[in-house]
């Protein structure tokens, strides 16, 4: 599914050079559920951003679905990303001015899906995630768990091959966190590849494989206990 070779990311400010990723070789096969763990500042989110085509590496190569995407411009990355990669964030990142329905249908709007088809798909995914009753509500009116379910719905609405989750349970209590992990597990069981950044050992147990990052380098890639 995706392969990085000697992937490097260096952040430059006026006087300081920070190496966030240092020649990382990383591979995820289709259908895998991979957890990335490590201390704060080790480069987990940076790696996720590059995998998700939200950012460009400063060195190395990145192949997504066989295509070298490392040096692409943002507009090119958007086209590659569209419909293929879904994102779930720690802070949900819903648009406050849109209703639940409108937040979920957003990727379909940009894929120019016809209105009737959009409605049908959004209704189906809301039904599946148990949030149909909230279709007309705004994010401020939902609990954390509900917001994350909406975010997951938005991430999967276009049927992406890959879902990237950045600390998806970080802002949730344990009950809601478990719900979210259950959902991710089901999606993976249905064939969606999932790469998840997490601090939680409990959550990491859902993964097929844990990758440890430290100071921008992969130090260990193991199966969970």
């Amino acid at each position: 599914m995706l392969i990085t070779e000697k992937l490097t990311k260096v952040f430059l400010t006026d006087e300081v050079e920070t190496t966030a990723l240092n020649r990382v070789n990383f591979e995820v096969k289709a259908g895998e559920f991979v957890a990335i763990m490590g201390p704060s500042g080790c480069g987990k989110s940076t790696l996720l951003n590059i995998i998700g085509l939200l950012d460009n590496p400063t060195g190395g190569q990145y192949f997504f679905d066989g295509t070298d995407v490392a040096g692409m411009k943002e507009s090119e990355r958007t086209l590659v990303r569209k419909g293929k990669i879904g994102f779930v964030f720690q802070s949900f990142n819903l648009i406050d001015e849109l209703t639940v329905f409108e937040n979920i249908e957003l990727p379909l709007l940009y894929l120019k899906t016809p209105p009737a088809e959009r409605k049908q798909k959004v209704d189906a995914v809301m039904e599946r995630l148990g949030i149909t009753a909230r279709r007309a509500h705004f994010p401020q009116q939902l609990s954390g768990g509900q917001q994350q379910r909406v975010a997951i719905a938005r991430a999967v609405i276009a049927g992406p091959k890959l879902i990237l989750a950045d600390e998806p349970t970080g802002n949730l209590d344990s009950a809601h966190g478990n719900e979210v992990m259950e959902l991710l597990g089901k999606l993976n069981a249905e064939g969606t590849t999932i790469v998840m950044v997490t601090h939680s050992p409990t959550d990491s147990k859902r993964a097929h494989r844990i990758v440890q990052l430290f100071d921008g380098q992969i130090v260990n890639g193991t199966k969970p206990d």
Binding site: T78, R81, G83, N93, I95, E97, L106, Y110
Partner: peptide, 12 residues
């Protein structure tokens, strides 16, 4: 933030 979300969702 909204711009970021829309771009992640596929907006050009």
């Amino acid at each position: 933030k909204e711009v970021g979300i829309r771009k992640v969702a596929g907006a050009s």
